[in-house]
């Protein structure tokens, strides 16, 4: 399903909107910028409840996949909401496409997938996309084509007439992504894009995010699933308790220059081999830490089973508890 291209040559309609909201940006230009961005949640009486974000300085460049990382409650969603104008900063400011976060015109070029897909549950997939298309003031033929393409992209062709009420969490996440892409946005903001998705869906989502980057789009995503972030992000910011702890390129941040990993195939780990290896390593001044046979991951196993099930639908024969095989 990930084969379908994310973007279909954007209709002229979008182009015209784009030029009305700002100039065309080049790769490397700053798209999102925050200065001293701070958010303090207050209660009704104005008393301080929580400093959710503290003096964040950030700038996101066109064409990169930027990850916000951090444990639960560290301020990731708060940052995103501030950028979108859903929250107003306590101090500091945020600009997107050079416009203040509160200006709705910047939204012409943004696609947003909320933490959970907050969509109208009495609409079906087609109506949902049509509705959001109208909010961009898209003409009806563009709307139709675009929503059909997106439904295909997120793999909901067979469920497009069902109301979202009947959707599973993962299906809702998919239609949520489709609505975020309805305007062929330049900046895609994804809050926990892989939450609720199965491993296959997660891989699909990650591929899709990379495809978006390949089309020159900028992606801002947040997650607390480190593997997701590591797989797709170019740069990350790590937040903890509202404070920025680390900011940089993923490859640089995770590279461990002091260690070397070797993988080989068609080999058995014999005593001979072990002592040979040790002597080679020591000859070069290193120290052998560990060796062994790699295990396959559960993800690989899951993936293999799903592939097989697709090839041969129906019930799989499983060994019963007593070891006999039942049909």
């Amino acid at each position: 399903m990930a084969e379908t291209a994310v973007s279909h040559s954007p209709a002229g309609h979008h182009q015209s909107h784009r030029s009305s909201t700002g100039d065309i940006l080049k790769v490397g230009d700053t798209l999102v910028e925050t200065r001293n961005l701070t958010k303090v949640y207050r209660d009704f009486w104005g008393r301080k409840k929580k400093v959710a974000l503290n003096a964040l300085d950030l700038s996101i460049k066109k064409g990169e996949i930027f990850g916000l990382l951090g444990p639960n409650g560290s301020g990731k969603t708060t940052t995103i909401k501030l950028l979108l104008g859903l929250l107003f900063p306590t101090t500091g400011d945020a600009t997107v496409f050079g416009r203040p976060a509160a200006d709705v015109r910047k939204n012409e070029r943004i696609g947003y997938l909320p933490e959970e897909s907050y969509l109208y549950r009495f609409l079906n997939a087609e109506e949902t996309l049509d509705f959001y298309g109208r909010l961009f003031d898209m003409p009806s033929d563009v709307r139709k084509k675009r929503s059909a393409d997106l439904i295909r992209l997120v793999g909901l062709e067979h469920d497009r007439k069902r109301t979202l009420r009947e959707y599973s969490k993962g299906m809702r996440q998919r239609i949520g992504l489709a609505q975020a892409l309805i305007n062929d946005p330049e900046l895609v903001i994804l809050d926990e894009p892989t939450s609720g998705l199965d491993p296959i869906g997660t891989i699909w989502m990650k591929d899709l995010i990379k495809q978006l980057r390949d089309q020159g789009k900028t992606v801002l995503m947040c997650s607390h699933r480190l593997d997701d972030v590591q797989d797709v992000c170019d740069r990350i910011a790590i937040l903890f308790n509202g404070d920025l702890q680390e900011l940089g390129e993923v490859s640089k941040l995770v590279e461990d220059a002091a260690r070397v990993e070797i993988r080989a195939t068609n080999l058995r780990l014999t005593d001979d081999l072990q002592s040979d290896l040790r002597s080679v390593v020591e000859k070069h001044g290193g120290k052998l830490e560990s060796f062994g046979h790699p295990t396959t991951t559960l993800e690989d196993l899951f993936r293999r089973i799903v592939e097989e099930s697709k090839a041969r639908p129906g019930r799989r024969y499983l060994p019963a508890a007593d070891g006999t095989i039942k049909s």
Partner: peptide, 11 residues
């Protein structure tokens, strides 16, 4: 929270 997907459009 459906309003989140509305006001983040150019509405």
């Amino acid at each position: 929270l459906t309003i989140h997907t509305i006001v983040t459009k150019p509405v």
